[in-house]
Structure formats: structure tokens, C-alpha cells
């Protein structure tokens, strides 16, 4: 009973936040609302028992992406959204409605939430549910699959992300040191 109340209230907050994000023009407020949106969806994921997804949503959505977007605003120094006069919402609206209706139609074929007879539960899931504790000793099955059964796959992903991070730091960080060095030299020349 209380689960239904939590779901309804959180989804209502989600809808309010989304509409407010669409209607607002103050970019800083929009980014703050993005943070709230991430926390709300993370809470919904926890209610649906998808703890791993909720964890990622909170770390990436509420943590990193908020900071990245605020940093972008600080760099570009644009605080307000600009409205161009000629904007006709009818074609995008029609595309969105048709796409949404198709997706909802597609969900009709999906088995019910938590259905034990669903094909996804019958393939390899019984093996993991039975064997993951004796094999790995990790209480959470999803964590056991990600960190133990697919350990090398996860290691590869981490290496890819790490390499990308180093590349970005080399590109951005190097440029900034040069610019500040040039500026300092100019300041010295001025004095």
C-alpha cells in the first residue's frame, strides 16, 4: 500500500520537475532541477529494487553531470535561454506522440513486472540465482555477475573510461596551462 503511495508521489514530482524544466528560461535553475530529477529517478529505481541502476543514476546524474553543466555555464557566461521567434511545436509534438504510442504499444508484449515465467528469468538467471553465492560469495546477484562472472569485461570498460578521462585531461588541462602562462608573461610585460 505505502509502496503505491511512494510511487505515485515520486512520479508526480518527476512530472512537475520535467514540466518546470521545459517552461523555465533561467539555465541555472534548470540545472538545479535536473539534479532534483536525478534524485527522484534514483529514488524510484530503489523502490523498484534496481539498486545498481539507482547508484549509477545518483553518481552520474545528480553528481557529475550537474557539475559539468554548471561548469559549462561558468565558461560560456550565458545565464538565460534565448527564444527564437519562429518555433512551431506541431511537427515535433506529432513525432513525439507517435514514437511514444509505438513504445507503449511495444510494452504490451512485455511480460508483467517480476513475472517468474518471463523468458529473461528462464535462460541463465536460475543458474546465477542458485550458483552465485557458492561461486563468488557476493550477496547481490547483479554485483556478482558484473564484478565476478564478467570481471574481465568490467575491467575492459574501466580501462576504456580511464583512457578517455586521461585523454580529456591532456587536451583541456594542457591548453589551460599554456594560456595562463601566456597571460602571466603579458602581465609581466605590461608592468
Amino acid at each position: 500500500m505505502i509502496d503505491i503511495v511512494i510511487n505515485i508521489v515520486l512520479l508526480a514530482f518527476l512530472a512537475i520537475t520535467a514540466i518546470a524544466i521545459v517552461r523555465m528560461t533561467n539555465l541555472f535553475a534548470i540545472i538545479m532541477l535536473f539534479g532534483i530529477f536525478s534524485f527522484l529517478s534514483a529514488g524510484l529505481f530503489v523502490v523498484m529494487d534496481a539498486v545498481d541502476v539507482a547508484f549509477t543514476e545518483a553518481a552520474v546524474g545528480a553528481g557529475i553531470s550537474t557539475v559539468l553543466m554548471i561548469a559549462t555555464i561558468a565558461l560560456t557566461k550565458v545565464q538565460k535561454e534565448k527564444h527564437t521567434g519562429k518555433h512551431r511545436p506541431w511537427l515535433p509534438l506529432a513525432v513525439v506522440i507517435i514514437t511514444g504510442a509505438t513504445l507503449v504499444y511495444g510494452t504490451l508484449d512485455i511480460p508483467a513486472f517480476g513475472d517468474p515465467e518471463a523468458p529473461a528469468q528462464k535462460h541463465v538467471a536460475p543458474y546465477y540465482i542458485k550458483q552465485s553465492i557458492p561461486d563468488t560469495g557476493v550477496p547481490n546477484v547483479v554485483t556478482a555477475v558484473l564484478a565476478s562472472y564478467r570481471g574481465f569485461d568490467t575491467l575492459g570498460e574501466v580501462v576504456v573510461v580511464f583512457t578517455a578521462g586521461i585523454a580529456v585531461l591532456l587536451l583541456i588541462g594542457g591548453k589551460r596551462t599554456k594560456q595562463s602562462a601566456i597571460k602571466k608573461e603579458r602581465e609581466k610585460d605590461d608592468t
Binding site: 539534479g35 534514483a42 547508484f55 545518483a58 553518481a59 545528480a62 553528481g63 550537474t66 557539475v67 554548471i70
Partner: peptide, 14 residues
């Protein structure tokens, strides 16, 4: 607990 940490660090950065 991790949410609390993320929240704190994110707000400090903002």
C-alpha cells in the same frame, strides 16, 4: 550513505 556523499560533494562543487 553513498547518496549522502555524492550530494555533499556535488553541492560543494556547485
Amino acid at each position: 550513505l553513498v547518496y549522502a556523499l555524492i550530494n555533499f560533494i556535488g553541492i560543494v562543487a556547485v
